[in-house]
Design a protein around this nucleic acid. Sequence first.
RNA 1: GCCUCGAUGGCGGAAUUGGUAGACGCGCUAGACUCAAAAUCUGGUGAGCUUUACGCUCAUGUGGGUUCGAUUCCCACUCGAGGCACCA
Length: 843
Amino acid sequence: MFPYPSGAGLHVGHPKGYIATDIYARMMGMRGKNVLHPMGWDAFGLPAENHALKTGEKPAVATAKNITTFKKQLNMLGLGYDWEREVNTTDPSFYKWTQWIFLKLWDSYYDADKNKALPIQKLIDQTFGKDTSYYDLNAEDKKIIDAHRLAFASTAPINWCPSCQTGLANEDLEHGRCERCDSMVELRPMKQWKLRITKYADRMLDDLKLLTNWEDFIKSMQTNWIGKKTGLNIIYEVKGPRVPANTTITTFTTRPDTNFGATFVVVAPESEFVARHLSLFPHHQAAAKYVNATKHKSELERIAEGRAKTGVDTGWVAINHLTGKEMPIFIADFVLAAFGTGHVVGVPGHDLRDFEFAEAFNLPVIRVVQGSDGDFSDITSPDQVQEENGTMVNSDFLNGLDIHAATEKIMDYMEIKGWGERVVNYRLQDWVFSRQRYWGEPIPMIHCPKCGLVPVPESELPVTLPDVEHYEPSGTGESPLVNIKDWINVKCPLCSAASQREANTMPQWAGSSWYYLRYADPINNSALIDPKKEKHWQPVDFYVGGAEHATRHLIYARFWHKFLFDLGVVSHPEPFTRLQHVGLIMAEDGRKMSKRWNNVVNPDDVVREFGADAMRVYEMFMGPFGDSVAWSTQGVVGCRKFLDKVWELQTKLSSIDFDLTKAVPELVSSERPSPETKSSQIQNHHRGKLCLILHQTIQKVTTDILSFKLNTAVSAMMILANAFTKAPTIDRHSYEKFLLLLAPFAPHLCEEIWANLGHDQSIFLEDWPVVDSKIIAAAAITIIIQINGKLRAELICTPEEARDQDLVISRAKNLLYEKNKLDPTQVVRKEIYVPNKIINLVV
RNA sequence: GCCUCGAUGGCGGAAUUGGUAGACGCGCUAGACUCAAAAUCUGGUGAGCUUUACGCUCAUGUGGGUUCGAUUCCCACUCGAGGCACCA
């Protein structure tokens, strides 16, 4: 995942993922693969703009400066990127295509039957007859079409950050606060562009099963974020004074089985039902007061209230189809307008919130489910409220059924009666896509007084950001761009009438939602991806980045990718085949590295003191790649010592160029030498051991890099280095194989030694070492001998001997007798031999 | 409350189709080098016990279970991290 080039530069935590992919890419290159390991800049966004507000330095200038710093720091670490393919989301030649995708979204609708996006013209043809032009439609008909576009303007309430002065998407919030500045957000009705991401909710959910190389917890986070719920919309007749004829209210429930126990209905203060009927309610004054109070209630006040239930009776009632009883309709703020229908039916016996509300307003509580505890008494306390299992009671034809069977039965029944219909709801909301700020991609639309919304013609893309002097948001829900007269005023592309450009910009997530596709062809001006080009580098084989993007960037990118798939621009339904998250590097004090705690470690200092290779090796060695681990300067020292040791080994290279890797396998399997053994045999034994360790290391490092267990790959190389250190001399071939393994981790050091050894081309042009499986197979085998599962001795034998169960067991017994661990008179009841591993005697 | 993951020496961690628990590194400790210190190198380092032995016992958050054998599998719990949350 490419970085946001912030003014603060890198801290040691940032490059962890980049070091890891660099190692992976370097090894793959040595294994003969054609590797694309690219880098770019996610450079739009608020920090650069806030910096401009503070210092007057233009965002474009500050961003360019930051990129220079970042690039210098990344290069210092020896990261082997293909800089010819560098992308930058703020470059007009890049955001031309971000704008192009937006126009395509505007020009598309989601066809439910074909289950894909189609050109909006198809819908116009279907609705108004073939070859009808959108611009010939009247305003009402245009609205019908606009309601289906995947990019659309909406005036529904959205999250507004009063400090950043911009609208935000749900994904930009953290616990009801602005993710960037931590301010409480407000719900404000505002004109905003939105993208209909909810149309792709099902496909994003279904296709998670294609992502077999994604970590499960990321997929589970996405599943929760999308929050698919199936249930029943029940339509109730509304009665009461001044109720307009045929007024109904629709409630969404996932538990229609409990409907015999429904005793009231609650609607959200912001719901359309309230907006439409407020003045007609018998208690309209109290209702208006409550609705108004909710609007002005701050998030803080709501939190202070906790789960306490407030509300107001409208004076109207809904009629329960099943019981015929009147259910009073309340307005209460615990119901959310944005989820389901904004109205819920209250079943206080079997929903905790409904129970609390019923208690507060003295509403009847009816038990309709008998819990597994068999309790059948009246429900008078919250802990009697059963939600998850039980058997139906007090429910006429549902009585005796399990709640799940009852759910199916009542859904069928209500659908047949025409009282309800099965529906699917999502927690995921459509993506609020406009920002009232300067430093982002301009949304390429024009407002014409005659034609309405008109897209900027593709040939006129990109719509470039004008240079401005002032970045202050207008605060009226418009970006500072509205004040740039010579930019904002344009002629309508259709009728040439004096028109205005859309002044809002796109969110920072826009460019990052597709940038990975651009690495294939970063300077192409005629197509996002050239269809004639041979290699498009898609989908991405391996994607590494922070888990905090699970419900942000990775949701958006999957959405756009699927849309581009529908357009035929990309060839695969998913953008990232394999995903690996990076664990954070915490500060030495265990807290997050932050300026606030003054505990940030700067890579420049680490590199100056210990070298780039020591930092690379340490960051890989400090713990499992996905875990959060605290930085330890002592740990870096340890890795530096390891590299020093590797350097020193050069002085021990044997003058005789004995090729250990071609050593005969017998060397490996020889018994431990006894003191009487000839010195030449002892030397052979050591060589055999070293040869075995070398090949075990080749195997371990190779598989560990592939599975991203980089900490154990480093430890395996340390073991080999220790073995080299203990050996009297080292033969050159073995040492060179070792250098090849270490090179991806410590490229500077290994390249230098490689040259010292007389090679005149880069070590990275060499082939990756291959394991000689014969040597590993020939190694002596240590078999553990247990009595009753407890370690008592160990037996060393050759692979041939280990295959002979009787031989191994009789040898093991003799060994035990010899050591007085086993009495020959004892009865061995059971003998277990796990080949090559263990013998367990049960006595 | 729901979802996901985790808990192993003084510290970071290693080992799972069930088979030697503590690899590797840090720290600590003893020794070598040194006038001395630092650096470096070498050895030791989970706890306890004794008959000091290629010895025994205990030990992978807690309590049970399955098994010849459990850090690994199952059940119940405790604690911690991340995500979601008045989502009907």
